[in-house]
Design a binder for these strands. Structure first.
Lengths: 342, 342
DNA sequence: ATTAGCACTCTCGCATCGAGAGTGCTAAAA
DNA sequence: TTTTAGCACTCTCGATGCGAGAGTGCTAAT
C-alpha cells in the first residue's frame, strides 16, 4: 500500500515524464512542483517506489522513469476521471451532425477527431450487426448480365453485391424473383435461409445461396471496415524515433489478423461503455511493448457494435486520450441508436 | 552526351547502390562487376559523371551515390523495359478472379499486391466515373422514416444514401415514386436532373434534389476512396530511419489534400496506360524529397478512372516497381472494362 | 521522520587518434 | 590519345580518454 505522499510523488513523476520525455530527478521535482519536503525525502520515497516496481532508472544516475506497472497504477488510481471540455464536445457533436447520416463519413470523422484530439494514431471499426435477419431484397439490372443485389437487414444494415448471370434477364423478371423471395425469407437469419427447400427456378436458387452467403460473411470477421488516421502523429514521438519500434506499432494497425486478435480479446469481449487501457502490450502483444492502446466499444446494444481507439507511446496524455475515446464511443453509440430507431 | 562506358558505369553504380544502400567506390565496382578497365579509369569517369550531376559524393572520400538526376537518367535511358514474370502475373490474375466482382475487394487486393511486390507503400484510388447518367433508382424503406436510396448510374456505378423523411411512408408509395422518377430521369446527368420542372409531390421533389446532389458530389473530389497498404515496408528502409523523413513521406499518403494535389498534377492529367515516375519530389513536393513515387492511371476510357501507385525510397528497385504498377493498372483497367461491358 | 551534506557513479559531449577506404593527380605505359 | 599504376591526400568512423554535470544513496545531524 502506498502512502499519500508516495502517490503524490509517483503522480508528479509520471506527469512530468509524460510532458518532457526526460527522466525526472528528485531535485527537479521539488523545484518545479512542491516544496513541502526536500529532495532527500523524495529520493527516499523514490527508492521505495522503485523497489515496488512503479519506477525504473535507465541507469544508476539518471532520474526515474515510470514502469509499465507505474503507468497502470496511475491510470487506475491516481489520474482521476476527466471529461473532454464542454466546448470541445460541442464542436465535435456539431461536426457529426453537419455531415448528415452517412455511416462511412461518421467513421472517417471519428477517426479524424480521435487522432486530432489525442495526437495519436486512431482506429475505428465500422459497426458489425449482432443479429441480422432478412428484411428486404432488391435485384437491379445494371448492365447486360450483371445484376446488383441490394439486401436490407432487420437492423438497418445494407449489403450490396454484384451477381453475374449465365444469360441476360429482364428487369421485370428480376423484380418478380425479388418479390417472391421477400415473401419467403422475411425474418429469417442466415441459417434459416440456407435451410429453405429448393426453389422453383435456378435463378431463384442462385440468389438464395448468395443471400445466405452474404449474411454469413457478415459475421465471419470480427470487425467491419477499418478506418485509421493520425499515423504520422506517432512518428513524431521521440520513442518512435527508432524505426523498428515504429514499424512494430504500425503493423498492429495495418495487419488485420493482429488487430482482430487484439480487438476480440479486449473490447469486443467486454461490455459497452467501458474504456480499456492496454499499457505496454500487457504481456500478450509483443508488437505493443512500447505502446499504449486505449479502446472502447460502441454501438446500439443488441443491434450492432464496433470499436474505437487510439494508439500512442506509453508516455501518453492518458486523461485527454481516455476522455476523447470515451466521448467518441458514446457519441457514435447515440448516433447509431438514433439511426436504428428512426 | 554520355559515352557507352559512362552509361555502363552509371548503371552499375545505381544498381549496386539500390542493392546495398552503401556509397559505391571505384575499386568495389571493378572487383564485383567487370574487369574490362581499371579502377583508375572508373575514377576518371566518375569525376565526369559527378560534374554532369548524375552522381554525388556524400563527402570527399566516400564512394559515389546517385543523384536525383542520376536516377532519372537511369529510369529513362538505362533501365530498359521489364515485365513482371509470367507466373507472378498469373498468380495475381488468379487472385483477382477468385474474389469475384466486388469493387471494394479489388481495390484492397490491388493495394496489397502492389505493396507486396514492390516492397513499398502502395496506394490505390477507387475509380471515379467520367460521365455519369441516371439509369435506375430504388427506394427502400429500412426502418421507420429512414429510407435507403440506391442509385445506379449509366457506367455501372452504384451509390447508396440514407434519406430521413418527415413522416413514415409505406414501401408501396416509395416504389411508386421510384417508378415515376425512373421514367423522367433516365439518361440525364446531374445538371439535367437539377433543371427538371418542379415535381408533383414534396417527396418526389426531395428525392430529385438528393439524386442531383449525389451525382454532383461524385465529381467534386478528384479521387474516390483511398486504399493504402504496406506502410510498414517503407519504415524498414534505412533512409526512413530518421523519423521525420518517414513522417513527411507518410503525410503524403495520409493527408487527402496533399495526395489529391499530387494526383491531379500527374497521372490524372495524363493519358491512360503510361507509368509516371516521380523522383525526389521533382522540385514541387517538399514532402517527397527523399522518396520516389510511381504512379499510373487505370480505368475504362470515357467511363471511369482511378490511380494506382507505390511510394518508396529513391533507392528503389525501379524495374520491379514500375512493372508491377504497370501490370496492376492494366489488370484493373481490364477488369473495369469487362465489368462495364458485361 | 526529515533533511543537509557528501562521496560516488554513470552518462554525455568533446577532443584525440589511427585505421581504412576512396579519391584525384601525375607520370608512365599502351 | 587513352588507359593505368602509383601515391599522397582527405575524410569518416570507431575506439579511447577525459571532464562536467546530474542524480543517486548513505550517513549523520536536526
Amino acid at each position: 500500500m502506498l502512502s499519500e505522499r508516495q502517490k503524490l510523488i509517483l503522480a508528479l513523476v509520471i506527469r512530468d515524464y509524460i510532458d518532457t520525455a526526460q527522466p525526472v530527478g528528485s531535485k527537479h521535482l521539488v523545484e518545479n512542483y512542491t516544496s513541502d519536503f526536500s529532495s532527500a525525502t523524495v529520493r527516499n520515497e523514490m527508492v521505495t517506489l522503485t523497489e515496488m516496481g512503479y519506477l525504473r532508472q535507465p541507469h544508476t544516475s539518471a532520474g526515474r522513469v515510470p514502469s509499465e506497472e507505474g503507468y497502470r497504477f496511475f491510470v487506475r488510481q491516481l489520474m482521476g476521471h476527466t471529461e473532454l471540455p464542454a466546448n470541445t464536445q460541442r464542436t465535435i457533436v456539431h461536426q457529426f451532425y453537419q455531415i448528415g447520416s452517412d455511416m462511412d463519413h461518421w467513421m472517417r470523422l471519428a477517426a479524424s477527431v480521435l487522432a486530432h484530439q489525442a495526437q495519436a494514431a486512431s482506429l475505428v471499426t465500422a459497426p458489425r450487426p449482432e443479429t441480422a435477419r432478412f428484411k428486404h431484397l432488391e435485384l437491379i439490372c445494371t448492365r447486360g448480365r450483371q445484376v446488383l443485389m441490394v439486401l436490407v437487414l432487420s437492423n438497418g444494415e445494407v449489403l450490396q453485391q454484384m451477381l453475374a448471370l449465365g444469360e441476360p434477364v429482364m428487369q421485370e423478371q428480376l423484380s418478380g424473383v425479388a418479390d417472391s423471395l421477400n415473401l419467403i425469407c422475411r425474418g429469417l437469419d442466415a441459417d434459416g435461409i440456407a435451410r429453405l427447400p429448393a426453389a422453383t427456378t435456378a435463378l431463384e436458387q442462385d440468389v438464395i445461396r448468395l443471400v445466405a452467403d452474404e449474411m454469413r460473411r457478415l459475421h465471419a470477421s470480427v470487425a467491419g471496415e477499418l478506418y485509421r488516421d493520425g499515423l504520422t502523429h506517432v512518428l513524431a514521438e521521440p520513442e518512435f524515433g527508432e524505426a523498428d519500434v515504429a514499424r512494430r506499432a504500425l503493423r498492429v494497425l495495418e495487419e488485420r489478423p493482429l488487430l482482430e486478435d487484439l480487438l476480440t480479446r479486449t473490447v469486443l469481449a467486454s461490455e459497452m461503455g467501458g474504456v480499456q487501457v492496454l499499457i505496454g502490450g500487457e504481456g500478450h502483444w509483443e508488437e505493443l511493448r512500447e505502446c499504449s492502446v486505449i479502446l472502447a466499444r460502441y454501438g446500439a446494444p443488441g443491434l450492432a457494435s464496433g470499436a474505437v481507439g487510439v494508439l500512442g507511446p506509453m508516455r501518453m496524455p492518458y486523461g485527454r486520450s481516455i476522455s476523447t475515446v470515451r466521448f467518441v464511443a458514446g457519441l457514435l453509440s447515440n448516433l447509431l441508436e438514433d439511426w436504428h430507431v428512426e
